[in-house]
Design a protein around this nucleic acid. Structure first.
Lengths: 260, 260
DNA sequence: AAGTGGTCTAGACCACGGC
DNA sequence: CCGTGGTCTAGACCACTTA
């Protein structure tokens, strides 16, 4: 009676019922069942789901297991619970849209032919703006980096970064070459950075950027600004990525989708 | 011995320990405790947390409660678990950045002085592109809407939308005036829309848009395209919002922050 | 008062990793 | 082998809503 290969005696794909022999945990099966029923229109936004006790009986599960499934549905924004009243299906709300950097990541992690061209990499005096961002005095030394990322020979992202220069500390290792960016995106290694603040802006390309990215001056692009902090809450890295609009797009699904 | 007002005998703010009399559930307290310890640097990225059994003993909690806390930390991207091995603190990864429409929402929901100026609202033949998006034949009727949102008299968002025109069905009610947009953003009402697809692009303003939004032609802006579907999976609404770059910015926090 | 969601217990058995 | 995370049970008590 343990999970393992698949279905023993039950009919092939018995959706809407818990298969105790499935590799898939019962609570996930329950989540799937309710999402399917909502997507099918059986439960419309605003509708009330059966009470937890009823669900327990119907599927032969213990309250904790049912609760776990419902908590997942809540986290995913599918339902809403009101204590003492019931569990209700949520409507679509635009503000629930959540965009991530998946697309940008895939651009950079294109293993086939991503290369980094270092345009500049040296130690320089911080400009007033950079000094403020990094919490330094104007004129302090920072590592200044300008890089161009190319996939299959075509420029796709321009990065301009400023790193804290502190002879004491081993340079925030990684930020200095290709691996660096890959590491930041994939999350490997990284033990010196505690947190970061990111923002996305819409901009038009200046003369220099346009030249580097081989686009028309004034053409639209995303500007992704970042500030990273170490475990002492000191900002250690400030900079931005510029990516032409024709190479990048953020997408999001909202509401009730049958499958991910 | 039940949850209620606050602390009975324990010292004021005994962080790092579970207060059984707090209004805050034990599992949330545990989450807070671990996040604080990680943010403080006690557990660095890559470090291994105590085993669940140890945590149970240390805080006098049952396994399910501890597990629930850890599951939350996993969902929040704070830790990663490896079966048979342990629970480990995750490093910062750029691709975890998640942006939402909070900022845009606040623009529109500025109760003080948001108003909608309807520029156009009529029934027209669908253009080939719109027809394709809405799954219609070119030339079918659609409701065509162009609106300008202003806060305190200043234009901030331009919306261009196309709605399925079907005499059969009560018009996807809401999409037609201010309340509409508010409703979509806040998620009130809405029982006819099942799901939506959104995308964010960087663009430059055309002549007409620039005029309406009182900006320079060619200045940068966000274009937020949307397609909404009903419970029969028919696209019922296609359109886009245009918002000048100087009025909008998407931000995200990644990594380990002490407080939200 | 009855029904609902919310939290929590004290175990159980399993699958997996490393010694 | 033992320790780890992963799932699940069969209840308990509480707070809240509704009538």
């Amino acid at each position: 009676m343990k999970r393992g290969t698949g279905m023993p005696g039950s009919t092939a794909k018995d959706i809407l019922n818990i298969d105790r022999d499935s590799f898939e945990p019962a609570y996930l099966q329950l989540v799937r069942i309710f999402k399917a029923q909502i997507a099918s229109g059986k439960y419309r936004p605003g509708a009330k789901l059966p009470s937890e006790a009823v669900i327990c009986k119907k599927y032969g599960l213990s309250p904790m297991t049912v609760r776990r499934a419902i908590n997942l549905l809540i986290d995913q924004g599918v339902v809403r619970t009101v204590q003492g009243s019931g569990t209700f299906v949520r409507g679509v709300k635009l503000s629930a849209s959540s965009f991530n950097l998946q697309e940008l990541m895939e651009l950079i992690q294109d293993e086939n032919g991503t290369q980094v061209k270092v345009l500049e990499m040296d130690i320089a005096k911080a400009s007033p703006e950079v000094a403020e961002r990094l919490g330094l005095a104007s004129g302090d030394n920072v590592i200044h980096a300008r890089r161009l990322l190319l996939t299959r020979g075509h420029p796709v992202v321009y990065h301009h970064g400023h790193l804290l220069y502190d002879p004491q500390r081993p340079i925030v290792e990684g930020e200095l070459d290709v691996t660096s960016l890959r590491g930041l995106f994939s999350g490997a290694g990284q033990t010196d950075i505690k947190k970061g603040l990111m923002s996305v802006q819409a901009v038009t390309l200046g003369e220099q950027e346009a030249g580097l990215l081989k686009r028309e001056q004034g053409s639209p692009a995303f500007r992704l600004e970042h500030t990273f902090y170490d475990f002492d809450d000191r900002p250690v890295s400030y900079g931005w990525f510029v990516c032409p609009a024709d190479r990048l797009l953020f997408t999001a699904k909202i509401g009730h989708w049958d499958e991910e």
